[in-house]
Design a binder for these strands. Structure first.
Lengths: 204, 204
DNA sequence: TCCGCCGTGTACCATGTGGTACATTTATTA
DNA sequence: TAATAAATGTACCACATGGTACACGGCGGA
């Protein structure tokens, strides 16, 4: 009886824990490589386990990627949760902070990995597109706290992405920062104007 | 005598012509696939020749890619030569025209191919980086005719790239257009202010 | 006419890939 | 302890890739 019940329980605690740990190791390997395009052999070598066991635990390559991307998604969600940012500062300051995090050397791997997923998205992968949308949502949610105008925020995001691209290729974060600062300044001054106009309007 | 001279002439006219023609066919195949990552077998099938002959003519895979990218570079250079754009229109109008060309359905393949090269650039390929720089140069040269402020133009380019990314993933060109229009409008009004200030300054 | 070269097709190779068959070891548990 | 299930290693497979060896055939020149 016991063993039958146990047989039905496909995910005993220890296995689950191990799987999570393995997933973390795999994600770390992907980050080190800056891409998901790592062969099972290389991945296995990187995480110190046999390819045999990788396939055994995850069931196949796709599952490894899926779990790793999911984990990445969760980590990014935690990192860019609005609670982690001071409330009453300017848009420019937040964007600058985000830019610093993004272009910090230790973020290079994650950045490359995210861009790799982005590439899969523009090549049509539904999973990668979902990832992109979720990141978009996250950042919009975050930035809306500092500039409550969805269109403007989405503009900033597009520009941000372009800046990331240029940074990755040239290695120089300054043009991107400059551009973002100017853009934010312009948007904020426009915001003030609008507010003024509205006030006048409601008074008149 | 004749045959010796002929032997020294490594590139008889007909071979050169064929090579150019083949290169064009290969580029067309790359464009159809939206990437350089096409196997020799597939490429051969696509251009209607045997893999054997592809390798024979070009000497190897790398040479095929090199020649195709070079040809692409030349075509883009021709397409975005300043002579092809009316001189005295607003920055916004030019950028809008560029955006239309970029997001036209028939440009999808080229766009994807360029993004593929861009990816190689951020992954460290020197050739791809050179391609990126050259494109950058081209566009700066073009846009400087409509907004003679290098920094501002470079800002526009970064944003443009970001817009392209979003367009490729979502398939919707409108957010990008909106953003670029707003950005250009802001830059141009700022430009006018500067001019006014300068005039006042020189008067006083 | 014969020779030699170029173009071409076919079959092949070495390597790398995701994945598996089989055997063996290592717990678990009745 | 004996029986059973899980974990693991080794060797292997099928397939795709870039590239090559070899043979064949036609064409121009002596």
């Amino acid at each position: 009886m016991y063993h039958m019940v146990h047989g039905g329980d496909q995910v005993p605690k220890r296995a689950a824990t191990d799987l999570d740990g393995l997933t973390a190791s795999c994600l770390a390997a992907f980050v080190r490589s800056g891409t998901l395009d790592v062969s099972l052999d290389e991945l296995a070598r990187d995480v110190g386990i046999s390819k045999r066991m990788l396939v055994h635990y995850f069931g196949g390559r796709e599952a490894i990627e899926e779990r790793a991307v999911l984990l990445l998604e969760n980590r990014l969600r935690a990192q860019f949760a609005p609670e982690n940012f001071p409330p009453r500062i300017t848009l420019q300051k937040v964007v600058n902070a985000l830019w610093d995090r993004t272009t910090a050397p230790e973020s290079k791997g994650v950045l490359l990995l995210v861009m790799d997923v982005t590439r899969r998205a523009w090549n049509g992968s539904p999973r990668a597109q979902a990832f992109y949308q979720e990141q978009q949502r996250l950042w919009v949610e975050l930035l809306m706290r500092y500039l409550p105008a969805k269109n403007a925020v989405e503009d900033v995001l597009q520009s941000f992405q372009g800046a990331v691209l240029a940074y990755l290729i040239t290695g120089n974060p300054e043009p991107g920062r400059r551009m973002l600062n100017r853009l934010c300044a312009a948007l904020e001054s426009r915001q003030k104007l609008h507010k003024k106009k509205k006030r006048l309007h409601s008074r008149g």
